[in-house]
Design a protein around this nucleic acid. Structure first.
Lengths: 255, 255
DNA sequence: GGTCGAGTCCCACTGAATGGAACCATTCCT
DNA sequence: AGGAATGGTTCCATTCAGTGGGACTCGACC
């Protein structure tokens, strides 16, 4: 029975807070810094960190604390990303070589897209998106593609979070976004023209699961100058379709 | 106050046990199965899983429970793997194209090597090693390379675990292993001839951190038939050296 | 209908987690 | 050197969160 906006208390919640404080791990955090970020008393943090270090969830070198190996290990076992990645890597590589653009694969998690794989292409603008990173659903082609296959309840949930503008081109009007989603659903391609970053544009397509929902989305992105999404419609959609196919084949008894 | 060999109790420990039960996630576990694997009462597991699901550490689809997205996300933030990977990928790609073999990058964690990156080459035997997977130190070139730079206390710790034979060629004699480690340290190259799998051989070199310890190890591996480790000595050592160099450059204020 | 297995819920009991305060150890002033 | 700020750990009385046995529900199977 606590807390401001959230809910659940308990060690688990605390440990969660500690682990998540590492989202910007600026070369290691100290106990005090952690206490600050998590809002927990120093003594508590010290004790919990001790336990986590013992379990190799955290590593410690003097006062610098980092996320540990075990977290990495566990992360690699996560179902969705593993399956998707395995099926996607060859498809993504091909898409990259066809387009000469950066290729991304992501899964939607509420109002964010979580990046599952990144394939950079040296011939275009470097992307600073990292595997495991999050991108806002409403401001990316990736997000719009995935969302276009979601139920309207889910869409409304995303909209209810507010559409924060990241560039002057970000869609901030819910009505406009709803409209686009319909088009995207029908056309099978989402475009993001300078909506996420001022000099980057992209095109994305949803990867459909056998049940019709979006298992994820693939995108190609590059310099916004002279970017013509229509140009990438065919290969991008084809890649998404091929991926969906491989995915279905890889999932044996789906239910 | 519990447990067999281990120690620490508490929610945190229980949680840990639950998460780690997913090492062989055979397409999703149920509550009962988890209770079995962890040795915890069903009611406790049910409750904890509920909490973990709320925190997105686990995902649940009916009765099938999987590791969740958040674990993947966190895993990507882990310091060591992230730094190493970033520095290593280009180097590994080059090594692969030079040798036409599978290239692995791993970090030592006690008696295991944890695989940080895998680059497969279609032209040789496919490896079933996965990113995040563990390999025994004593039975792999990767492990021997890393261990050759460790303190003798660490070496003895590994030896004390017993040297389990994975093939008839696995080194099971501590004295023999100690001897090899010295050679490896001097020669800068470890060989693993059918020691891990009967039809695979490999060559590996330690990646040195500025403080002289092994930050990890790189290996090339392929079919054992006609494998000549000496042939890969130069490129493998060069790759390890280059990687060490990039790593040192990437670490700003090292201490 | 009866039985089995999976999962959830309830709730009285208790020991594990808590966190303020005191205590070290470093580092940085002046 | 003295002194003060910062980072970290340890102690310990208090209490509250987690526990887990058992009752209960739901569905599948015979």
């Amino acid at each position: 029975m606590r807390d401001a906006d959230g809910d659940a208390v308990g060690v688990l919640d605390r440990m969660t807070r500690i682990l998540e404080a590492f989202d910007q791990d600026d070369g290691g955090l100290g106990i005090s810094e952690l206490a600050l970020r998590t809002g927990l008393p120093k003594s508590t943090v010290s004790r919990l960190v001790g336990t986590l270090v013992r379990g190799r969830y955290l590593e410690r070198d003097g006062r610098r604390i980092h996320l540990g190996l075990r977290v990495f290990e566990l992360g690699q076992l996560a179902q969705q990303p593993r399956e998707l990645r395995a099926a996607a890597l060859p498809v993504m590589a091909e898409l990259r070589s066809q387009t000469g653009l950066n290729v991304l694969l992501a899964i939607r998690d509420g109002r964010d897209m979580v990046c599952i794989a990144v394939m950079r292409d040296r011939s275009t603008a470097p992307t600073r998106v990292r595997t495991g990173g999050r991108l806002p659903v409403h401001a990316t082609a990736l997000g719009k593609a995935a969302l276009s296959q979601a139920s309207s309840a889910e869409v409304e949930d995303v909209l209810s979070g507010g559409l924060k503008a990241l560039t002057p081109h970000t869609i901030t009007d819910p009505a406009e976004l709803r409209r686009q989603l319909i088009d995207i659903r029908h056309g099978g391609l989402a475009e993001g023209l300078r909506e996420f970053a001022p000099d980057v544009s992209c095109a994305a397509a949803a990867v459909l699961a056998p049940d019709g929902s979006a298992a994820g989305a693939v995108s190609v992105s590059g310099r916004a100058d002279g970017f013509d999404a229509g140009h990438f419609r065919i290969p991008t959609r084809a890649a998404a379709a091929r991926l969906a196919h491989r995915l279905a084949a890889a999932t044996p008894v789906l239910r």
